[in-house]
């Protein structure tokens, strides 16, 4: 059996796919941030779908590229580049990519992309919390957000993971189709 990674590199231009993924993730991130919400930080993290797809389909290096591109593009578009919000997003995304790549590499026999997405979502929130802790000089009251953050992270990670899993299945079905003969 041929691995998906080889198929995808065989069939598509790799740089093109990464560029499309970056733009999709950034656009979803911008739309999600702009929707009015009761709590400003409450988001599904749907842009994680593209990072997770990249990690699963093409390896963690491309996933890291997509994540970095998403953070920078969304930061420029939202006007939060090099503000505390940007560093929160950057720290969360970095930690999330590291955790997701490690989890997918080590435990892909036990967990599917859904579990990887849960881990990544919780890691993203914990990374953001770390930055808030540093900004607030390790103030005790920041820890009161910890239960809410883990709860929201695991639930939204589960939902995002299910969408991501369907996405990956579609990709694999598409890739495994025989090429059209002309």
């Amino acid at each position: 059996m041929i691995s998906t990674q080889k198929l995808i590199e065989h069939k598509f231009n790799r740089e093109l796919i990464i560029a499309v993924f970056i733009i999709c993730a950034a656009i979803i991130n911008i739309i999600e941030t702009s929707i009015p919400k009761p709590i400003p930080w409450l988001r599904f993290g749907l842009s994680n779908i593209f990072i997770l797809n990249c990690i699963v389909l093409m390896g963690w290096e491309k996933g890291a590229v997509v994540a970095a591109g998403k953070v920078v593009v969304a930061g420029i578009a939202l006007g939060t580049l090099f503000s505390p919000t940007f560093f929160m997003a950057a720290a969360g995304t970095t930690l999330s990519v590291i955790v997701m790549a490690g989890a997918w590499k080590m435990f892909n026999r036990i967990i599917s992309p859904v579990g990887v997405s849960i881990l990544g979502s919780v890691a993203h929130n914990l990374g953001q919390l770390t930055i808030i802790l540093i900004i607030m000089h390790f103030h005790k009251s920041i820890f009161f957000q910890l239960p809410i953050i883990i709860l929201v992270g695991s639930v939204s990670g589960f939902i995002t993971g299910i969408i991501s899993l369907e996405f990956i299945k579609k990709w694999e079905a598409y890739i495994s189709m025989p090429p059209k003969k002309e």
């Binding site: 998906t4 390896g59 590499k105 036990i110 599917s112 579990g115 639930v155 299910i162 899993l165």
Partner: peptide, 22 residues
């Protein structure tokens, strides 16, 4: 990647374990 062969992807019990754990 080591695995991720075509058609091998579906929700596994480990995912629900992770969700319940968190």
């Amino acid at each position: 990647m080591p695995s991720s062969e075509i058609g091998a992807l579906k929700i596994k019990p480990g995912d629900f374990f992770l969700l319940a754990f968190f």
